[in-house]
Nucleic acid binder design. Structure first.
Lengths: 149, 149
DNA sequence: AATAATGCTTGCATTTTGCAAATAAAAGGA
DNA sequence: TCCTTTTATTTGCAAAATGCAAGCATTATT
C-alpha cells in the first residue's frame, strides 16, 4: 500500500491540475485565482479587499491588482465603505454572479461525475473524511513554512 | 452541513496554502514546483525531461528552465541518454537527495500532526477515502477545461 | 541521402509576483 | 486642535514565471 506522503502528494497534484484548467465561462477565461476571488466574494457579505486577500492567502498587493482586472472585466464592484473610507468593499456584479454560477455548475458536474463512480456509502465516507481533514488542518498551522527573515 | 462544492473549495485552498509555504531546506529556498520536481525525479527511475513535465502537468519549456535552475543549485543532474541522445535523463545529486529527504520529513511531520488529532479509525478512514478519491479522479479527465482554440 | 518526426532548449513578449514606498483616511496623544 | 501613528489600499519597480514560436540536435522514415 502507498505511504501517506505519496498519497498526499498525489492528491495535492490532482487538485493542482484541476485548478490549472479553471475556468472558461461565458466567453471569458477566468484564471484560478480569479475564480477563487469570485467564489470568496460571493460567499462573504461585502468583504473588504483585505478580508478576501487573507482568506485566499494571497499577498495583498498582488490581490489588489487581481481585483482591478476583475473590475475591468466588469465582474466585480469596489466601493469605499461609508463608515470608514479607507476600507473598500467588494461585491459581484450581475455578470460576476452569473460567471460564479457557471463555474459552480462546472465544478458540481465534475464532482457528481466523481461520485458516480462510488457507492452511496463510499461517497458519504469520502465527504466526511474531507470534512474531518478540513477541520483538522484548520486547527493546525500550515506546513513547512520557511524560517522568517 | 456544508455542501460538496464548498467542501472541495476549502480543501483545495488548504492544499494550495500548504503548497505556497513549501519549502526551506538546508539553507535553500525551494519553490513549490521545484519540490514537486525533486519528488518526481526521486520517485521515477532516471526519468526524461518530458516524463517529469508531463507528470506535473507543466509546460515543457517552463519545465526546462526550472530544471536548469535546479541544476545550477546543484540538486539535479541531466545526462543525455546513451540509447537516444535526444532524450535527457534526470536524477538527483547527493545534495538533491538530501533536500528531498528533508522536505519529505517536513511533510511527514505535518501529516503526523494532522493524524494525531484523529482516532486510529478516523485516520484509516481518511486515508482510504483519499486513496479512493485519487483513483477515481485518475479515471476521469480533469475538470472544467477551457474550450480548445 | 533527403525529409520528417522527436526531444529539448532559447527568444521573446506577456503576465505574475512581492517588497518598498506612496497615498489616503482614521485613531490616538499632546 | 494639531501632530504623530496606525490602518487600508494602491503604485513603482525589478525579479520571476509563463507559453508560444522558432531553433538545434538527434533519430526515424522513405
Amino acid at each position: 500500500m502507498e505511504n501517506t506522503r505519496d498519497l498526499f502528494q498525489m492528491i495535492t497534484r490532482r487538485f493542482g491540475l484541476l485548478n490549472k484548467n479553471c475556468c472558461s465561462a461565458d466567453g471569458l477565461d477566468i484564471s484560478l485565482i480569479q475564480s477563487h476571488i469570485l467564489y470568496e466574494i460571493n460567499r462573504q457579505l461585502a468583504p473588504s479587499v483585505q478580508e478576501v486577500a487573507e482568506a485566499l492567502g494571497t499577498d495583498i498587493t498582488t490581490f489588489s491588482r487581481q481585483v482591478q482586472s476583475l473590475i475591468k472585466m466588469n465582474l466585480v464592484n469596489k466601493t469605499p465603505s461609508l463608515n470608514d473610507r479607507r476600507i473598500h468593499t467588494l461585491e459581484l456584479t450581475a455578470e460576476g454572479t452569473n460567471i460564479a454560477e457557471i463555474i459552480d455548475e462546472q465544478i458540481n458536474t465534475y464532482l457528481e461525475e466523481i461520485f458516480a463512480h462510488m457507492t452511496d456509502f463510499e461517497k458519504e465516507t469520502v465527504l466526511r473524511s474531507i470534512q474531518l481533514l478540513n477541520n483538522t488542518m484548520g486547527k493546525i498551522g500550515s506546513c513547512c513554512a520557511p524560517a522568517p527573515r
